[in-house]
Structures are given as C-alpha cells and as structure tokens.
Design a protein around this nucleic acid. Structure first.
Length: 440
RNA sequence: CGGAGAGUAGCUCAGCCUGGUAGAGCACCACGUUCGGGACGUGGGGGCCGGAGGUUCGAAUCCUCUCUCUCCGACCA
C-alpha cells in the first residue's frame, strides 16, 4: 500500500480526550475515531489489526474443535424473559422497540439465543460434546465508558458456548477452551495469566479471567510469579487428550482478581519473593455454568438410558476489540506502537527518503513491487515529506520492520533495515533484503 | 449514579474576569527554497464560538435551561 494513496490520518498532537497510552497511540496513528462515548469507527489501519486478531482467535477456536456460525446483534426479548435475564440485566442492556412495538435488545451476550438454537435441533447425547462460537459486535451500555476500545460500549467479542451431557464432560470442554485461550493470546505476543474470577451475571460456579499485566490495567490482581512465564502448549497440542494437567499446573498456583482475592490464602500459599501484586487487563474469560440456562429453557438431550437430561453449559469470551488496546498497552515505547509481528497491520514500512528523486523512487518502486509479489504487506511511504517526518510516522505506526532507502545508501547499493522492537539497524543489499523478507 | 471539569477551525489551545468586526500554532491548498530523525518563506481556504431562551443598542464573553464529552469513585468482556 502506498501511503500517499492510503487513508491514514496521522496526528502530531494528542487528542485531549485520550488519557491512557494505548488510546492516545491508536488515535495518533490513525487507527480509530470516536463517534460517541464508548463507540468507535475503525479506520483502515486499525481495522487491519482488528481482523488479524480476529483471525488468530478463529484459528485457535477451530483448532480446539469449536464450530463457527453467526448470530444477530438484535435479539427478541422473549428469549431473555424465558431465562429471567430480561429483568436481571438492568440498564446496561440496550432495549429497542421495532415499528410493531415489539421489544428487542442489542445483544450484550448470547447464552439465551444459542441455547434456543441448540434445543431446536440437538436431541441426542450422541451429538455431544458440541461447541459453537461466533465473532460478533456486542453492546453494553456502560455507565462510564473509558480507556478507548478497552472499555467501549460497543465491542467486538468472540463468544463460544459448549454443550455437554454432564459436568465431567463440561469440564473437559472448559479445559479445551482454557488451553485454546493460552495459545490464542500467546500467538498475539501477549503473556496472559488465568486467574480465578467472579462469575458475574452470566452465572455459574467456575470461572477464570485471562489477564495481561499492565500498569494501566483496570483491576488489581494477585498471583504467583511463576505463572508469568509458564510455557504455553504448542500447535501440536491434542485437544482430544486429557488437558487437565495443563490446567492444573496453573490452577495449583495462586492467582486471583481483586473480586475473589483472599489475602490470608495468598500469604500462606505464595512465598514472599514470588508474590505478584499488579494491575491487569482482562482479555478473555471462561465460565462453566452448568444447567443455569438449560433447565429454564428446557434444553434437553436424550441420554444413553433413554432419559432426557438438561445439558451442562459453558461460555467463553474473548474481547477482540479490547485486545487491540491491550496489545498497544503492552507493546509500545516513547516513539509509538511496537506491534508484535502476528498482529501488525503491515509487515514492513518502506521509507523513501527522497521522494521525487528519480533513482531513489525507482529503487523503492522496485523493492516495493518485489516484496509485495513475495507475499509481504508493505506500507510504502512515498509521501513528499522530509525524512524526519517519515521516520517519526514509521515509529508511531510501529510496523515490525523499516526498510530505509535514500540516495546515500543507494550509492553503495545498500538498504537500511531497522527492527522496530530492538532498534537494531543493519545495511543490506537489495538481494539480501529480498532473501530475508520474501515469505517462505 | 455521586463528585469534578471541558465544549471556540480537522488537531492543540488563547480570547470570557472587565460585552464592541472571531485569533495563534499545527494540519490543508498554491508557488518557491529545502530534504539521512517531525524545515522555511509568501499567499490562500476553512468557524451560527455545542444548542435553546433571556439581559443589552450590541453577547464567544453576563444569566437560565439543555445536550455532549472527559476525569475520580461505585459497576462491568
């Protein structure tokens, strides 16, 4: 993509409404525009990141055996009345009337609807276990939206729902999602720690929040230090095997959010030099809620003994749009964002230091087309700007690699290659650059 | 929902106290000079001063109401 033809409104100054660093950087790098409190338009650069994150989530869900489909954003109120949640949810739920005065709502979550779909079609224990997910916009009318996309009212969430014949099966499903989440966040360059958590309005008695440690995190968290760098299962993990050792290795160590924190236990179970008290951002949560929805909604399957039993359910959320903010929060420096490669909006920033100079332009065009053909997403800064401005923009946008081409280097036939994360620079020939960056 | 603050150009803000032709920097357009870490000159475009009432000869400025946004707290993926 040529920067001169792209839609990338970079800001030199910080918009005054942005208080935390991720929000500031997302606005400055032209990823995002606020349209109302907690409601954002995703500009091209931000949308690319959002889609990359969504795709990683999708791949890991599929790997764990979950099945994607899509439910609507608007839901009829009847379902929610059936589970009693229409009254329980409160003003956080956006309620709407259609032209026929029918009560509708913009879904804050989808347990009720998925249970309705499930019960309409699935009648036998033989279809279980089943896990259905989608990635869809949600709306929760927060009293106080803040922190940019980390606490918007409208947000993109991946929500999965598992169905099992009994509690033992449900716990196996829970463990699958637990492991899938470890992998998902790790692939995005994040270190997450699963922590015991309250179950909230979703209900249930077993829940973990996946927390990214960050100074600007919303909640106070307490955990054992060894959890931070615990290795994550590889892509070859067998989701049909018994995953409980992976889960237990973590649940054996103390980790809790402030809601369920027990200071006495913390001090008793964790040696003083291993105690971590920090702030954290929640990027995902897993719940087991048993028969909370299947009983009132009569989501029954026939068991091997011919008797109908309510299914045991779980739900599993990942804040896709929140993750964009969380990643920026975790990955930035004074100059701007430092994207982890898997979620970077482009792979490479190609910087033309002297746009308008025939030789420099030709060298840039040549490299740009070759890298693009080699499967790389290149953002080519061909603007008529001074070098300083281009370097500053590149650092702000934070693509993993910067290829710098100017008259001085070209005399020697060299390209400067800079790693955004480490700041390391080296001079390579054109061929060496192609070898290095052509996608295998 | 309690407390605090802010709405003036795309962005950051001055002007308001003490009423009298709407400003600066950045950004944008044109021309020229520049060009290896956010250049400079000249000229130009862009605003119902959040909205509605009121006071006044006259309101961005004073008064009343309202809407929106932000921050702290309580609540939440």
């Amino acid at each position: 993509m040529r920067l001169s033809r792209y839609f990338l409104p970079l800001l030199k100054e910080t918009p005054s409404e942005a208080q935390i660093v991720s929000h500031r950087l997302m606005l400055r790098s032209g990823m995002l525009r606020q349209e109302a409190a907690g409601i954002y338009a995703w500009l091209p650069l931000g949308f690319r990141v959002l889609q990359k994150i969504e795709q990683i989530v999708r791949e890991e869900m599929n790997r764990a055996g979950a099945i994607e489909r899509l439910m609507p954003t608007l839901q009829p109120s009847e379902l929610w009345k059936e589970t009693g949640r229409y009254d329980a949810y409160g003003p956080e739920m956006l309620r709407i009337k259609d032209r026929h005065e029918r009560e509708m709502l913009y879904g804050p979550t989808n347990e009720d609807m998925i249970t309705e779909i499930f019960r309409a079609y699935v009648k036998s224990y033989k279809a279980l276990p089943m896990n259905l997910y989608h990635v869809q916009w949600k709306f929760r009318d927060e009293v106080r939206p803040r922190f940019g996309v980390m606490r918007g009212r409208e947000f993109l969430m991946k929500d999965a729902y598992s169905f099992d014949i009994d509690e033992a099966g449900a716990r196996r499903s829970y463990n699958k999602m637990y492991v899938a989440y470890l992998r998902t966040f790790s692939r995005m360059g994040l270190k997450t720690i699963p922590m015991r958590a309250e179950t909230g309005p979703i209900g249930g008695d077993l829940s973990h929040e996946f927390i990214v440690l960050a100074e600007t995190g919303e909640s106070q968290v307490y955990c054992h230090k060894d959890l931070i760098d615990m290795p994550v299962p590889g892509a070859d993990v067998d989701f049909d095997s018994d995953l409980s050792p992976v889960v237990q290795q973590r649940t054996d160590l103390y980790a809790a959010t402030s809601d369920v924190h027990d200071e006495e236990r913390f001090e008793k179970e964790v040696p003083e030099d291993k105690r971590v008290v920090a702030r954290g951002i929640e990027v995902g949560q897993v719940f087991y809620f048993g028969t909370k929805y299947s009983v009132p909604m009569k989501a029954l399957v026939t068991g091997p003994d011919g008797k109908d039993v309510p299914i045991h359910g779980g739900s599993y959320g990942v804040g896709v749009s929140r993750l964009v903010g969380a990643i920026v929060e975790a990955c930035h420096d004074d100059a701007g964002i430092v994207w982890p490669e898997p979620v970077a909006p482009f792979d490479i920033a190609l910087i033309n230091l002297k746009s308008g100079d025939a030789k420099t332009d030709a060298a840039c065009e040549d490299l740009y087309s070759k890298l693009t053909k080699a499967g790389r997403d290149v953002l080519y800064d061909d603007r008529d700007e001074r070098p300083g401005a281009k370097f500053a923009s590149a650092d702000l946008i934070g693509l993993p690699w910067q290829l710098v081409i100017g008259p001085r280097g070209l005399e020697k036939g060299m390209v400067e290659v800079k790693n955004r994360a480490t700041g390391a620079k080296e001079e390579l020939s054109m061929d060496a650059v192609l070898n290095r960056f052509a996608k295998s």
